[in-house]
Design a binder for these strands. Structure first.
Lengths: 236, 236
DNA sequence: CGCACTCTTGAGGGAGCTCAACATTTGTGG
DNA sequence: CCACAAATGTTGAGCTCCCTCAAGAGTGCG
């Protein structure tokens, strides 16, 4: 079920709609022409791709103020409403203009999408189930604010498909984290983080390397294999 | 070792350098200020992040004409030369302008980076080692052209850190693919694909869903939980 | 109140990791 | 150019973690 709340016309004439989708609604499918990109006002959206064997890879969860569906040509992912959700739907052309309605440069929208993809890679890069689940919980807590309990509106199946695990392993791991006193459960969707430090160390927050790679030697010398390519593409 | 080949000045005054890095050189590190973005002329570059337990997540291999290091503020990844490499180094400001030197919109650069990240997620999303390695080989063959043997300039360790496996499993799996007649090995770095169709089915090329999600019901009706957020952010 | 859906938990097996040894390739200095 | 050393790659054996199969418990909705 989709509801139109409001339609707004930009100076340029592009039309931005404010829409409400009910839980479970598909916003767009993999392969659909990417006519719009989306910004969440409230609720949660998931994006996913399907592998040939039928299994689903969830590529991201998106919260209020997050942006998704930023793609050129066709959507490479499917987007669905995890909860009832209100979104602001922007025509894709709008990206071409210098800035979005907030005055932020259009690139920031893409960079946020890129950051989201990197977050997903980071999660999947963890070795064990405990690592991944802990990293997932930490990421959500940091995103939403861990203050007095984290809501997990998505199902265990969603989490499993996001982390590359089975629903069973996710459930077992979460139970185990609770048993070890790192979190407390108040129903499956309501998690309270008791030991953030412990969770973070389990999550393996990346080692912060913050120094500059520094000096470069700028020495003019003859090249080797790349000269041909070089000549093939002369520059002004 | 870094060598400067040429320095080119754009109309806008920004300076693009053509540089050669020898094998193994670090181009930039995680946390470095992102002053440049890079375009490969020849050779191969890898990007990676490190987890707290010391293990490395390789987030991408980049070939000629690929773009990497496109980030806002600081680099979130480390970039290293897999082989000797010649790159064109662009000041980050250049992104702000409407187009790069090729006349392509700056967004395409970001979108290519995003596509690269999605490719990485897709690889990590595969269930078994055979799936991942097959998908990896197929991706490289498609990228480079499978014509008469695929070169794998990266080490087994690189592949393992990219696919979330160990070097042992990667080696075993590649040997196994050869034993099953899907590929032929001519030294560790030189692979010839014998049965592309078989590899692709192992890789689990994503199910192509290509229909449009179609009609939307646009019904004006009162909202629920999002009204507050709505009012909190009035639009022109 | 009962059905459907989600979540939890247990038992058993298999894929991939660890540990270990050996083979091959690459790089270096005589 | 060869000899040797170092790095990289291959392969085996055993074990661990997660997946599979299975059953039961909790929750929400008509």
């Amino acid at each position: 079920v989709i509801t139109l709340y409001a339609r707004e016309t930009e100076n340029g004439g592009s039309v931005t709609d404010l829409l409400r989708y009910s839980k479970g609604t598909v916003l767009y499918r993999e392969g659909d022409p990417a006519r719009f990109w989306y910004e969440i006002v409230s609720g949660m959206v998931r994006t996913c791709r399907f592998h040939a064997d039928g299994h689903r890879q969830l590529t991201g969860f998106f919260y209020a103020d997050d942006v998704f569906g930023v793609e050129h040509g066709r959507h490479s992912e499917t987007a669905e409403a995890v909860t009832a959700v209100v979104i602001r739907r922007h025509p894709h052309d709008e990206l071409i203009t210098a800035s979005t309605m907030d005055g932020t440069p259009s690139q920031q929208v893409l960079e946020r999408a890129l950051e989201s993809a990197r977050q997903c890679i980071f999660l999947l890069g963890h070795r064990t189930a405990a690592n991944r689940v802990a990293a997932f919980l930490v990421a959500i807590a940091e995103r939403i604010g861990a203050g007095e309990g984290v809501q997990l509106p998505m199902t265990r199946t969603d989490i499993a498909d996001h982390l590359g695990l089975t629903i069973h392993t996710v459930s077992r791991t979460i139970s185990d984290l609770a048993r070890r006193g790192l979190i407390a459960l108040n129903g499956p969707q309501k998690v309270r983080i008791l030991d953030m430090r412990g969770l973070q160390s389990l999550a393996g927050e990346e080692a912060a390397v913050t120094y500059d790679s520094g000096t470069e030697a700028l020495i003019a010398s003859p090249g080797t294999e790349a000269i041909d390519r070089l000549k093939a593409r002369p520059r002004p």
